[in-house]
Each structure stands twice: as C-alpha cells, then as structure tokens.
Design a protein around this nucleic acid. Structure first.
Lengths: 335, 335
DNA sequence: GCTATAAATGAAAGCGCTTACATAATACTA
DNA sequence: TAGTATTATGTAAGCGCTTTCATTTATAGC
C-alpha cells in the first residue's frame, strides 16, 4: 500500500502538502493540488485511517451500544444511525448490551477502549449514577430512549407517557370502559411511563386502573400470552386490553385465538412500537408508532453537531408517538 | 489519559517492558509484571488501540457489509457475528450495501479504507469478477450466503437447492400435486437455487414446474400478494403455493385472506427462511429454517481462524436447511 | 569461581500520518 | 522598487504504541 511519503515523492512536494490536499482545508495552489491528486491516482493511494487517527487524535468512529442486534426495533435504529454517519464518512462500531448491567458496562468500556469519538447508548440496565459518572470522562455520548434529568441535553427520547395516553385514549374514544393492561417490566422507565399515560387517559374519563386488570409482563411474546390468560382468569370482564409493546400484543392475539376468542369481536387489543411484524399479525395490530429510525438519525446528528462541530445541523430531542389504527381494535359493543 | 510511558515511569521499567506485560506473550518476571500491573491500575491506564494498531499493523477490526441493518434476517446474522468477535476482543465495523452494486462497492471501499483486518461480505449485486479481483488484494474476506466457484474456500453458504427441494417435497408428501411457485428475483443465485430444488422435488414425482404456476416476485411482501393474485388469475388450479421467502409468503397469506380464501383449507402456503415473524402470521407459517445466526458465527470463526490464526477453531462452510412444519400447510384433499 | 547459556530488560527505530513553526514565493502598497 | 502583508510550501516534532537488537542479569555446568 502506498504511503503519503511515496505520493509526495512522485508529486515532487513535501509530506505536509500531500496531507493538506487530503484534508483540503488549508489553501494549496491549484497546480500542486493537481500534481498531488495525479500522483495519488497513479499510486492507487488510500490514506491509512489508523495513522490519521493517531496523529489527529480523532478516530472518526462512533461507538453504538444497543440491547440487541436482532429484533425489529434495533435494526431500524441502526439503519438510521449508519446511514447518517456513512454519509459523513464516519464509521460505526457496534456492541450489544443484552439489557444486563454487567454486559452494558463492559460494552461501554469496550467501546471506550476503541477510542471512539463519541458513543450512542441505548442502555437499560445501567444506573443513572453510572451515566453521570461517565459524562465526566472525556468521551461524549448521547442517550437514546432514556431520560436522565442531569443529562437532559444528551437525551433523545420518545414521550412514552404520551404514547401510553394515546393508546388508551383511543380505546376510550371507541367506547371501551373496561380496559385491561399488560405492562412491561416496571423497573424499566419506558414501561412505567407508558403505564402512567394509560392512567392519565383513564382519569380523563373519570376512570382508574384496576389491579385486577393489570398484569406485569416482560415485553416478550410469552408475557403477552400469559398476561392475557391471567387477565381472563381474574374473572373481571374487559372489552379491551392494551399491551405495552407489540411483542406482547402478538402473544395476546395468539393466546386469544387459542382460547377461542376472536379479536376484535370479543375484545380489542392495542400494541405499542409499531414494529414491522405488527403488520403481519392477524388481525393487523393497531398500535402506537415509535419513530425509532428517525430517532436513530437524530442521535447521529447530535454527534455530528456536538462532536464534529457541524453546527448547521438541527437536533430534535423529544419525539412524539402517534396512533396507528389497524384491525385489532373495534368499537365497544354496548355493555 | 495515561500513556504507556507514564506507566513505565511509575513502575520504574522501560516502555518495552510495559508493552510486554500488556501483550503477555514474552516472558516477564513475576515481580516486574506485578509492578507494572499495579502502576496501570493506579493510573487507570487503558491502552490506546489506535496506537497499537498503527504500530502492529493490526486494527483488530472486522468490516461487515450486509444488505440492510433492519429486517429479521440481517439482525440475526449480525448478532452471531458480534457475539463471536466480542468474545475475542475484536470489533466490528458495519456498513449497509442495500443490494445495489454501487453502494456495495462503495461499502467495501469504505471498510477497506478503515484498515479492517478482514471483511465479512453479504453482497448480492456485485459481480463474481469483482470479488475475484478483490481477493487479490491483501485484505482477506469471507462471503456469506454466496457461492463463487473460484473462491470456494471463502464461502459460507446455505444449500438453497436443498431447501427448495425440502419445501416442495414436503408439499408433495402431503399429497399436493398442483403446486404453484412464487420465486425471488431470478438474477439472485439463491432465488434460482431454490427454484431448482423445487424442480428436482417435482421431478422425483414425475412432475414438472408449469409456467402458468410460476411467478417471479421480489422477495418482498407485495411480491407475494401480487404473485398470489396472478396465480389465481391464471385460472390454473393449484392446492399449494411455495414462496421463495417468508416475506412473500406473508404477502400471499394476506392476499388470500382478503380475496376470501382460507389457508390452509383452500390451499397451503410454504415460506422460506424462518424469520421471526413467520411465527406471528396467521396461520403460523410452515417454512424452511435458514440457520443464519449459526452461519454468522461461522463467518466470524473463519476470520478468527484464517486471519488471527486461532488454529483450533473448526469451520463449517455449507449449512443445511431443514423443514419447519407449522400451520399453513395441510394435507391435500382428494382432487 | 569462572565461563557458557538462557532469561529478562532496555534503547531506539519506526508505523503513516497531522500540524506548529519556519521559510520561500508572490502580491500589494506607496 | 524597497518594504510589508499574504499565500504557498517545507521541516520536523510528535501521536502511543510494537518490535528488533543489544545489553544486562540470573542460572547452570564443571
């Protein structure tokens, strides 16, 4: 592989000049620039990004920590992030945190040791305190899908409370008054926020959430099916069930069918997230759209702006969910 | 950030010694090793991986090019790859090729310029010739899900022909004799291979594929729904349709429902890939399992073995698909 | 105890760039 | 046209490591 030195020799200029035309920031005369370009071309020169990084103290790489690499959710997110950085000539180093504290902390450490210029973190298990400590180190980071008061300026998040509200409010507007709720793990903020939105919507109709119509699931399919069974077993009648995410909603749909119920004739089901398969379920799932791809883009832009000083970029930090009405919700029949 | 130099000073040894304990390959006396370790600990030293790479001419990073980052398929693949490398302390740089020649070539160039030690390529649009040329450059690569004769030792692929055979053979064994086929884009090798398998299975029963029962789709949902409509419109009766992937199968399922048909009562549907949502469709899709996560692992291990010389690792290059029988296929009623 | 050998450590030269800083070339002013 | 301000280019000192080779120190053999 040709080095900058060979290029400089061929072009008959100094190392510095070659470097200058590469970074075309400083003025170089047209004549020499062309000579250098020609030499590069001729040698098939490709800059050594490692050497560039060492010398400039910039790795041009951004570390991404997501919970999982598979699953409908993270894929969308990564797509948004990669597209943005690729266009900017930066690259992305990816690690998975698996929603566990130790793995997440290790992942961050791993990314840090890779000299990333910045980190985009989608962490769930790590404590706020840990993140606050981390913010004191030199590597900047954005938090995706997490709200930490003290780090508000680096958070990009969805208004989960609003989403929760929208879901239940929609059901209420369709005449439902007995609404069951299958929550996510309540140690997760988003699970809690969504439930709060649910409560607020109920309150708007002078209603309150009932313990008997509440089940704490795990954000996974089985959580939804078990949840539905538990709800049904409680003996408390309901005409609709809102699930805190689409996986659980799908589980609920399957369980309903297996138990001989028909959705939405017997009861309605709402999901949350609008992941790709929500469209493949039967009936097609009514849900709340989570603009995760857009949020991924935005996280990348935050980095471009804050770290690479591309000041013209605008950054939006809080995103609003919105309702996607499909086939799993029907009007309540008179109770 | 502390450097190796400060560590060496604190420990009262030379740079070289510190470097040696870091790479703990050369003999260092217990006493000095402990002194150095203590000094590192005390300074919170973390090696600068960029400098290491420059000096050692190893970036410890592997470039991955996939068609998309989202979608059920690639996520699984990436998970397998990441897990393997993370455990080995290597990291992964990811780019998306979007199934287009130019983007794929750009992506490879991008990864190459990042000084990756090796590449894992899941490319579709790039020519065999391009890959053969690429193989002459110094950066080694594996091909995932692609079979190039001249590069056979670097290919990790699924026996698609066998998969195609399995799908149709299963239908035949269930008594179906009029089997329609919705293919992928026939310029893709896997689409062609799957179809060949279909033909071979038919031949086993003295049958042949009929033009009227063939539709070339695009591997996407709409391809499946349009395909089913076209097939139905052809007027040629069939009791089963095999789709070259699950997305199209799902599209076919939806179209069938919308047109008033019931699956599998009116006709059976087979998918291919066994992506996550195949489980969420209604009826649950019978399909062919594509062990993509295992193949991702294997690609990573190929790199570990060939590039990082971890000779103890065993590598499997061709994987066999197998049948997943769920609910979308029923026995043929007497015709 | 003295030499031959092996083991542990140090000195120093890069790896391929960036970037002050110094210098040379050119343009502008009066 | 000398004097100054600009602009273009070159020189060389790192960036933080690895690694070869030389040197020192310990170990063993007789």
């Amino acid at each position: 592989m040709a080095t900058i030195y060979q290029v400089s020799e061929l072009a008959g200029v100094s190392l510095a000049t070659v470097s200058r035309v590469m970074n075309n920031n400083v003025r170089v005369s047209e004549a020499t620039r062309n000579k250098v370009l020609a030499a590069m071309e001729q040698l098939g020169y490709r800059p050594n990004s490692i050497a560039q990084s060492l010398a400039s103290n910039r790795s041009n790489s951004i570390g991404i920590l997501v919970s999982e690499l598979h699953g409908p959710f993270y894929g969308e997110m990564l797509t948004g992030i990669e597209a943005e950085f690729r266009a900017a000539g930066k690259h992305v180093i990816i690690a998975a945190g698996h929603s566990e504290r130790v793995t997440e902390e290790d992942g961050i450490e791993f990314l840090l040791s890779r000299n990333c210029d910045a980190l985009i973190l989608h962490v769930e298990a790590v404590s706020d305190q840990f993140l606050i400590e981390l913010s004191k180190q030199e590597t900047p980071f954005v938090l995706l899908n997490r709200q930490v008061e003290a780090l508000a300026d680096r958070c990009i998040s969805l208004d989960n409370e609003l989403g929760g509200f929208l879901a239940t409010d929609y059901l209420l507007s369709q005449g439902h008054r007995h609404i069951a709720y299958i929550a996510g793990p309540m140690w997760k903020t988003d699970a809690r926020d969504r439930f709060r939105g649910h409560q607020r919507a109920l309150a708007g109709y002078q209603l309150a959430a009932e313990d008997k119509l509440f089940y704490e699931g795990d954000f996974r399919e089985t959580g939804g099916s078990k949840g539905l069974q538990a709800l049904l077993a409680s003996g408390r009648p309901f005409s609709a069930v809102v699930c805190a995410n689409d996986e659980m909603a799908s589980g609920a749909l399957t369980a309903a069918r297996e138990l001989g119920y028909e959705v939405p004739a017997d009861f309605s089901v709402m999901g949350f997230d609008n992941v790709n398969f929500a469209y493949y379920t039967y009936p097609k799932l009514s849900t709340i759209d989570y603009p995760i791809s857009a949020m991924g883009h935005m996280a990348a832009r935050w980095v471009l702006k804050q770290v690479y000083k591309q000041s013209s970029i605008a950054v939006q930090q809080v995103f609003d969910p919105h309702l996607i009405a499909r086939d799993s919700v029907a009007e309540a029949t008179i109770t």
